[in-house]
Design a protein around this nucleic acid. Structure first.
Lengths: 157, 157
DNA sequence: CGAATTTTGTTTACATGGAAACTATTTCTA
DNA sequence: TAGAAATAGTTTCCATGTAAACAAAATTCG
C-alpha cells in the first residue's frame, strides 16, 4: 500500500488510457514530431514554417488582402501584422494600400521574396515523407486526405 | 498588367497549391480547428488541455517521475516545471522526492486532483466527435488509428 | 446627408512554451 | 575513492502568438 513499498516506481510503459484516442492529443503529438524533424533538417537554413507558408500563398495569390490571408492560414490578425512587418523588413514582401479601399493591405512578393520561395520550395515540401516511417505510402496518402477532409478542404486546391 | 487594372482583387477562392498536401500545414490547421472547438465549449470551465492531460496521465500512473512524464507528453522540462508548480499551487498535485534518488520528483494526484480529473473527464473526452463533421464515423476512426501509428503508438496503450 | 455600425489593420500588454545556463545528485571511471 | 561525466530539475531570458483596446476607413440606415 505504501508508496515506498512498491519497489519499482515506473518504467517506460506509461499508461495513457482513453486519452490515447483523443484527436486533440494525437494531433499535438504528431505536430511536435513533424516540427522536430523539420528543425533537425531545415531550421538552420533560416526557414520558419509559418513564414515560408505565408510567402508561398502570397506567391500563388499575388495581391491577396492581409486579412483574407490571415483567415485562410488561421493566423490571428495581430500576429499577421508582425509576420508581414518582418517580411517587409527582410525585403521579401510589398504592402500596397489600394485606392478603392484604403483600409486594406494587399500583399505581393518582391523579386527577392519570389526567389526565396522558389529556392526553399524543395526543402520545405520535401522534408515530410521520411517522417512517415511507421506508415506505408498508401497509409500516408490516406492520412493526408483525411486531414484535408477534416479541415474542410474538399478538393486539393 | 497593372495591379489596379485587374478589376477584382481576390475573393474566397485562395490557391494553396502543393502546400495543401503538406503534413505539417494540415496538422496545424487541424489542431487550430480542434482547439477552437474546445475553447468554445470548455475553456470557460477552467479546463486547459495541457493541464488536464498532465493530471490525467498522473492519475493513471501515480508516482511517475516528472521527467518521464515530460518525455511522454513531449513537453520540455522547463515548461513541465511550471505546469507542475501551478498544479501544486492549485492543490491538485503532490511532489515527492524519494530517498533512493533525491534528484527526481515523483508526481501524484491529491484527492482534489483526482476529483477534478474525474469530474472533467466526460467533457474533455467528449468534445471531439462533433468536430468530425466532414468525416463519417469510419473515417474518423481511421484518422485516429493512422495518427496513433504516425506517433509510434502501436497498440492503444 | 450624417450619425451609428462594421470592417481592416495596428498597438499594447500578457500568456504560453522553449533554449541555455545553472544547481544538486548520482553514476562512472581511472 | 576522488574526480569526471551523466541525469534531473529549476531559473532566467527570449520567441511566438493572442486578446483587448484602439484608429482609420467604409458602409448602413434613420
Amino acid at each position: 500500500m505504501n508508496k515506498a513499498m512498491q519497489g519499482r516506481i515506473e518504467e517506460d510503459k506509461v499508461i495513457f488510457g482513453e486519452i490515447a484516442s483523443s484527436i486533440g492529443f494525437l494531433l499535438r503529438l504528431a505536430q511536435v514530431r513533424v516540427f522536430d524533424a523539420f528543425f533537425d533538417k531545415l531550421a538552420r537554413h533560416g526557414l520558419k514554417p509559418g513564414e515560408f507558408t505565408m510567402l508561398w500563398v502570397i506567391g500563388l495569390n499575388p495581391g491577396i488582402p492581409q486579412g483574407l490571408l490571415a483567415r485562410k492560414l488561421r493566423i490571428k490578425p495581430a500576429h499577421m501584422t508582425k509576420l508581414v512587418q518582418r517580411a517587409v523588413d527582410a525585403g521579401r514582401l510589398t504592402r500596397t494600400v489600394p485606392d478603392d479601399d484604403r483600409r486594406t493591405v494587399l500583399l505581393t512578393l518582391t523579386p527577392d521574396g519570389a526567389r526565396f520561395v522558389e529556392e526553399k520550395k524543395p526543402e520545405f515540401l520535401g522534408y515530410l515523407p521520411r517522417e512517415a516511417v511507421a506508415l506505408d505510402a498508401g497509409e500516408f496518402e490516406t492520412l493526408i486526405r483525411l486531414l484535408q477532409r477534416f479541415n474542410g478542404m474538399e478538393d486539393a486546391r
